[in-house]
Write a protein that binds this DNA or RNA. Structure first.
Lengths: 226, 226
DNA sequence: TTAGCCAATATTGTTGACAATATGACCTCT
DNA sequence: AGAGGTCATATTGTCAACAATATTGGCTAA
């Protein structure tokens, strides 16, 4: 997984990564009650590192533990998912503003190049849904790190995105609106390139708000069930 | 500590609480490198639960671990502290807006009563600094929970406040401006009582921004060293 | 004298066994 | 027959010993 990042990669790190991706990808379903020994055999781990990883994941809100009763993957309701988007709105708004003030010209150029790639993928409709989802993640990821706000990036990348992606995988292809989202991305990058932090913040907030309303509408229409 | 909250309280929970408060109170200084066995003897714990707690604390960003090299309390620079206030500004702004929409009348009445208590404490100047700091925490705590936004409250109470309080203890008495802060608190509660979410958000953001500028000024003047 | 290397040591990472507790089935009593 | 309680079981929480690795001090050589 991220063996290359850290020179020494402990079993606990391994356990953490395995479980996190398993949860995000839905291999461990929300609400599912899972035993430690089952997880151990499944990921070929021992209980010590596993428990350490469980502690981290609990702290990040991806699962809940009841003493002596076991651990289960957190299940987020539709309203709670909407609340996540409200949080994203203000936090990523801040990230966009600070990114406009602090990103290097090179980073901005890379960001624009990323959008070009996304555009080609959408046009060619190659694995549209997957790339759209991953591309969207990539875009927001770059802006979060570009904010140069360590804690902000940590909270976005470490907490919120994993929970959102967890439902992205579930809602999968039906999120739709790729062209429109790409257009919004472009305008945000334009504002960043012009070093207009205030505008970047406004556009980012509106972008996430639109995404939230899009999902909300689909839920109301019964197209999506959570 | 919080033995009463959870019917069964594991050693790992105990270790987590002990370490967290020790870090926040400054008993474990930032940058200090601490050994596991030392912590075990100090808090009368064994290494298993301790390591689980260390994992949680690392995940929350209160300490950093390097494999085989040990664990040290995170040391936040002045600029990083300022970044924390930027995050608080947007997140607590959101919390205030949602609190205005969702708090019960009873909760609002309690909040006002809390401010009355704070006012008496300031007037009587009884342990002004301590009560002002704790009172401020209490105020923000109530609004975070009043937002009815689970994740938002979790992030504020579980992540940000601990880091901010860590420095509150260090800067201790010199944060000052209690009357002015109280007045700002009152106006925020007024907006909440009138169910004016937009105004509550604006006032909260301005309140935290003022607190940030206050600390920033003191740092520039050399009154505070971080 | 200083820079680089090597080994001893102390600390962390890991493992498996032991103790404590929640769950669920079975039985009894109403 | 249904509700309540009790006991067996399986799972989690805890512990202490073992293995692996980073640090530190000393040593050698330039």
């Amino acid at each position: 997984m991220s063996e290359l990042l850290s020179p020494t990669y402990t079993r606990a790190d391994e356990a953490f990564d395995c479980l996190q991706t398993a949860i995000v990808k839905g291999e461990l379903a929300p609400g599912e009650k899972i035993g430690e020994l089952e997880l151990c055999s499944r990921f070929d781990l021992t209980r010590g590192p596993l428990r350490e990883a469980l502690g981290r994941l609990e702290s990040r809100g991806l699962l809940v533990r009841r003493p002596h009763a076991g651990v289960k993957v957190v299940s987020v309701s539709a309203s709670e998912l909407m609340e996540l988007y409200r949080i994203r709105e203000v936090m990523e708004g801040l990230a966009a503003r600070q990114a406009a003030e602090r990103m290097t010209d090179q980073e901005i150029a890379d960001l624009q190049a990323t959008l070009d790639t996304h555009e080609r993928m959408i046009d060619e409709a190659q694995g549209q849904a997957y790339y759209q989802a991953e591309g969207d993640y990539d875009f927001h990821h770059r802006i979060a790190t570009g904010s140069r706000n360590t804690k902000l990036a940590q909270m976005l990348l470490g907490d919120l995105y994993y929970m959102v992606r967890m439902y992205r995988y579930r809602l999968s292809t039906s999120t739709g609106r790729p062209q429109r989202a790409l257009g919004e991305h472009r305008r945000i990058v334009e504002a960043i390139a012009q070093r207009d932090g205030e505008l970047a913040e406004f556009l980012m907030k509106r972008h996430i708000n639109a995404a939230r309303q899009n999902i909300e509408k689909k839920i109301e229409e019964g197209e999506l069930t959570i």
